[in-house]
Write a protein that binds this DNA or RNA. Structure first.
Length: 491
RNA sequence: GGGCCAUUAGCUCAAUUGGCAGAGCAACGGACUCUUAAUCCGCAGGUUGAAGGUUCGAUUCCUUCAUGGCCCA
């Protein structure tokens, strides 16, 4: 029973105290990391170390104990990897040998001694001193099957990380992705900024917000659904290349690709168009994939995905023709679209304005089929209240979304910088809202005022960092790339 | 929101038609001087997710609830 095991281990901690040993000491100094020792000395022979003694002090968590009477092997994990510690009864002080009786798998230990190579050729630390630095009271999951229960893995991520090396690797890759993006944008003279997450008016995306309240000012605030409008205020202010990587919040359902809080990269560049951003995105993603995997082609959900530029371009209308089977001359025909929507199982289609209807049909028919990286372009005006109208067709905007492996990864457009047009777009959104669309934008007077000062022509893009990490680590659920995904309370 | 599935020892999983709730690992006791999931001997560990119902008898059948997964909307 678990309580029995915990009680036994507590008793061992108590036994340590009786010997004058602190079961939660913090005075051990590490000189070497497991990963570096392997990198430097794997392949060495015992004769090499007899010739040249190399003393090390390592510390980490005991993941396995293999005892042979007068020889004991410990598998010890530190942050860089695993190293074996070997103890010979004859060669350690008696009190160290006694201490092994109090040692459990899961304890954090410190070991000091020279490097050695076992008869089987494994690099080891031949311990001359061993300390239990932190006594672990709870048993780790079984060593071979490990921890697989997904609920426990997410709720007790610390255990998941201790026992599942691939989980540690996924999160290491996530950090590497963010680092790569920062370097990529910094190198192009972008400025990293931070803008408020608490906002009196939310905007920049179509979503329902979380509401909260500021006591001292007695005001309603929203957690941002996107940083977009503040970043463009900075572009107005002369920060012509800016980016932010941080959390956004959307009060929506939870699924394998949605978590209520998620991390988004948004970047804005003045004097650029959405077409420039397509090229930038191709460069960013192919470079990132090469950096992580050494190749621009990886497997995701069983598909070979190639990040080699150029990515496919597909307009919304072409997509509706190709995937929804609507004849080219009928892509703006309400009746034809409604027929397709019916066939594709879109609900409440008859209540939707034309642009929204086109998007529903496109998404229902095409989204899952877009496996290779595809820039979906030429969005309807109504669904794009912040995008610049297309020169030559004012019913469309200069916008794209990037789809990879059937998932939406990025959204970008040339920015609308005509303040009067922006005001009309907001007014149309407010009307949509009055008609029952809870995701429509509220009016933002200050944003219009900012545009009235003059925002340079610009283009901007948002990329979901969680989804990008899913893609680059072939993770099926967003919960596998977020340390602590939202869960209901334990029963 | 709807449908299906799962929940049994610390972990990973069994349990025949409704008939004494089991194994491996971990733990505990012991053997063992080179292991890599060490091996061997011994021993112990259970409110079968919760509540209720049917039954002589429920892990098993029924109802409700909780948590999670998959699919659909």
């Amino acid at each position: 029973m678990e309580d029995t095991i915990i009680a036994q281990r507590r008793a061992k901690a108590e036994a340590m105290r009786e010997k004058g040993l602190h079961p939660y000491a913090n005075d051990f100094r590490v000189t070497h990391m497991a990963g570096a020792l392997h990198a430097e000395h794997d392949g060495a022979t015992e004769a090499d170390f007899e010739e040249r003694r190399i003393d090390v002090a390592i510390a980490g968590r005991v993941m396995a104990v293999r005892s042979f009477g007068r020889v004991v092997f410990l598998a010890v994990d530190d942050r860089s990897g695993r190293i074996q510690v070997t103890l010979f009864k004859k060669q350690v002080p008696a009190e160290v040998w006694e201490l092994l009786k109090l040692l459990d798998v899961g304890d954090l230990i410190g070991a000091e001694g020279p490097l050695m190579v076992t008869r089987k050729g494994e690099l080891s630390v031949k311990a001359e001193q061993l300390r239990i630095i932190t006594k672990s009271l709870r048993p780790l999951p079984e060593k071979w099957a490990g921890l697989t229960d997904v609920s426990t893995r997410y709720r007790q991520r610390y255990v998941d990380l201790i026992v599942n090396a691939d989980v540690r690797e996924t999160f290491r890759k996530r950090a590497e992705i963010v680092r790569y993006i920062r370097r990529f944008l910094d190198d192009r003279d972008y400025l990293e900024v931070e803008t408020p997450m608490l906002q009196p008016i939310y905007g920049g995306a179509s979503a329902r917000p979380f509401k909260t309240h500021h006591n001292a000012l007695d005001m309603q605030l929203y957690l941002r659904i996107a940083p977009e409008l503040n970043l463009k205020r900075l572009v107005v202010g002369g920060l012509h290349r800016v980016y932010e990587i941080n959390r956004c919040f959307r009060n929506e359902g939870v699924s394998t690709r949605h978590n209520p809080e998620f991390t988004m990269l948004e970047f804005y560049e003045a004097f650029a168009t959405y077409e420039d951003l397509m090229r930038l995105t191709e460069e960013l993603l192919s470079g990132l994939c090469e950096h992580l995997h050494g190749t621009a082609e990886i497997e995701v959900e069983g598909h070979q995905i190639s990040f080699a530029a150029p990515f496919r371009r597909l307009s919304i209308y072409d997509g509706i023709v190709e995937y929804a089977g609507v004849p080219r001359e009928q892509v703006t025909d309400r009746a034809a679209l409604l027929e397709a929507a019916e066939r594709l199982g879109v609900k409440k289609a008859d209540t939707l304005p034309l642009g929204y209807l086109q998007m529903e049909v496109f998404e229902a028919a095409a989204e899952e089929a877009l496996i290779q990286p595809t820039f979906v372009t030429d969005f309807p005006l109504e669904v794009s209240p912040l995008s610049r109208k297309k020169d030559g067709d004012p019913t469309l905007v200069d916008r794209f979304e990037l789809y990879i492996a059937g998932r939406e990864l990025a959204n970008a457009f040339s920015e609308l910088n005509d303040p009067d047009d922006q005001r009309r777009r907001f007014e149309a959104q407010v009307a949509q809202r009055a008609a029952g669309n809870e995701e429509a934008h509220p009016m933002d007077e200050d944003y219009v005022r900012a545009l009235e000062y003059g925002m340079p022509p610009a283009a901007g893009q948002g990329i979901g960092i969680d989804r990008l990490t899913m893609l680059m680590t072939d993770s099926a659920s967003i919960r596998d790339v977020i340390f602590f995904p939202l869960m209901r309370p334990e029963a």
